[in-house]
């Protein structure tokens, strides 16, 4: 029982550790206003280009997600990992 608890604790610790690192990264990004990251509105020429958008090909992304959802055990991350089809 002690061994099970130890395994659980080490697994839980690892998971908490991973999430903590991520939360820290989010916090760092969120404080970007104070750290010099970012640009002024008039410096957004390149960022405004269609190819620089994160959802430049939403239908292609949906097709890719469907193929991978059907053939691999992972899904989601970029967006929802739900599914809505009986392909997996």
């Amino acid at each position: 029982m002690k061994g099970v608890a130890a395994t659980f604790n080490s697994g839980a610790r690892r998971r908490i550790g991973r999430i903590s690192v991520f939360v820290l990264a989010l916090a760092l990004l969120s404080t970007a206003g104070c750290t010099g990251l970012g640009v002024k509105p008039w410096e957004r020429d390149d960022l405004a280009r269609p190819m620089m958008q994160l959802d430049v090909d939403p239908l292609n992304d949906a097709i890719d997600d469907h193929i991978r959802f059907s053939r691999e055990a992972s899904s989601g991350g970029r967006g929802f990992g739900g599914g809505g089809c009986g392909c997996n």
Binding site: L37, G38, V39, R44, L47, L54, F80, G81
Partner: peptide, 17 residues
């Protein structure tokens, strides 16, 4: 999603299912 500089954009997500 964070604009890093005039040519760089980064995104970080945590997804739960």
């Amino acid at each position: 999603t964070q604009v890093v500089d005039a040519v760089t954009l980064v995104q970080m997500n945590y997804a739960f299912h």
